[in-house]
Design a protein around this nucleic acid. Sequence first.
DNA 1: GAGCACTGC
Length: 639
Amino acid sequence: MSVAKRVSEEMETDLGDKVGYAIRFEDVTGPNTIIKYMTDGVLLRETLKDADLDKYRVIVMDEAHERSLNTDVLFGILKKVVARRRDFKLIITSATLNADKFSKFFGGVPIFHIPGRTFPVNIMFSKTPCEDYVEAAVKQAMTIHITSGPGDILIFMTGQEEIEATCYALAERMEQLISSSTKTVPKLEILPIYSQLPADLQAKIFQKAEEGARKCIVATNIAETSLTVDGIFYVIDTGYGKMKVDNPRMGMDALQVFPVSRATADQRAGRAGRTGPGTCYRLFTESAYQNEILPNPVPEIQRTNLGNVVLLLKSLRVENLLDFDFMDPPPQENILNSMYQLWVLGALNNVGGLTEIGWKMVEFPLDPTLAKMLLMGEQLGCLDEVLTIVSMLSVPSVFFRPKDRAEESDAAREKFFVPESDHLTLLNVYLQWKSNQYRGDWCNDHFLHVKGLRKAREVRSQLLDILKTLKIPLTSCHMEWDVVRKAICSAYFHNSARLKGVGEYVNCRNGMPCHLHPSSALYGLGYTPDYVVYHELVLTTKEYMQCVTAVDPQWLAEMGPMFFSVKETDTSLLDHKKRQKEEKTAMEEEMEKLRQEQAEAARIEKEKEWEKRAKQQQQVAMPGLKKGATYLRPRKMGL
DNA sequence: GAGCACTGC
């Protein structure tokens, strides 16, 4: 948006006239617009309406090296547009040196090199692998502060907990230094930054340090690309970052610490050279940089759930997804897995084409499961309620839990609990916020993130617009919460679990163990329901179900007959099962085979995963921290 | 009785 604004000023027109922009919730363009700035997501959705992109003569894909999921899908689509249209030009800009790869993909097109505008950065490697990078980073920062010239410091850590530990240790070291020193010690402003940090605290990193003071920013990879701070002369890079990895075999996500790639390490180092020549201290060896880490990050498309991508490509009538021209194709197994999930949801028919439900699901900017929930809400007459739940699930958790007020915020959260359902708890939160005029101070009083709730409201209104264009009326079940639970159940029956022990469940389909999270509304219920469905399974210290709703097993049998049968002699259900069996097609049989293979693969994968984690991770008590405070650190570099 | 890299539609 800010680029569009600058260009429109340059061209002496109003923003939205000749020059405009479009992002998710905002379209500032008009009939005169000749230059339109937009996100890759907006362009991708435009291809759904106009596959040839006839509106455009030239498309510039910026920051292509970031290889976002949307960009990678667009590459394949745009390659076809280039082949079909002679009047169309495509320009791709990338900050890394792998221009050859892009050129090759588009058929050996010419490459133009434009020199950068940054200052040189002196790189310093560790001589030996570092045992404790929090400690090493603190030491390095203190050395810079005491011995080096002016300029701010930026430290890359993997997450909130490490950032807090680093800041705490830095403050302590500074205190020691001041009390033991006879000379005055220059001030060090220690500033944490990560995306979950409240906005007012985030803003602090952009304020100029007071006279004679030095800023030391301790950041996650948010400071790699998302935000830029000028005045950084020193970067300290731990060489690690967190990444979300989807494990389709286990049906589970995990946020894991990985060594960063060479390209990412270079990107981090570059942050020291924006204002003048800088220095980057890498807390890993040169040999690790050269020989152990990957040259580039694994593109998102190869490590993410492909449900949305499959749905989108199917709607673009790509018959065989395994043949689609991806620059870096995702593993075939991931594609098949996502197809299976979509088939289970009823979005794909037995020959792999979109069903009526599937075509509707494409319209919504939602995960397939959530789109399905919306459509079930329509069918069951509780669309209004489901719409809110879906919107709340599309934003990061709205519950705010600062460390120093943990008990207080837990108590506040519990007041919203609807027994037996975290989904309904989310609905409850939203409804109460609404009846308090969507006020920000009300959120603060109740330990809720205002930002998240506002976003949920925006998502809700966007989805409502889409429902309107599809002529789907907004129905309500007026607090008949069993109806809502039924709609929830119908979207999640692939994520259903059966009680096995105290707070311990197993996935109904593949026997994967899964546990209630202590923050769930079902946790302190006094009893545990026999059957539940969950939004997602997350691997941390255990396999935790996140966002859980108790369900009636009858519902599972009614709505997911490909998985479940009921033991009671309910003839209508049995007949239904029988009919299903007779109608089994080749695709169904194949899918059933796949299901069994998956169950076995999941078991093996689980064992492997835990073995790997046992090797990789070590709980280390932080010296100088409050008792019990720990952080996770990988032992040494390596994949 | 636990843990939250980061975009994007």
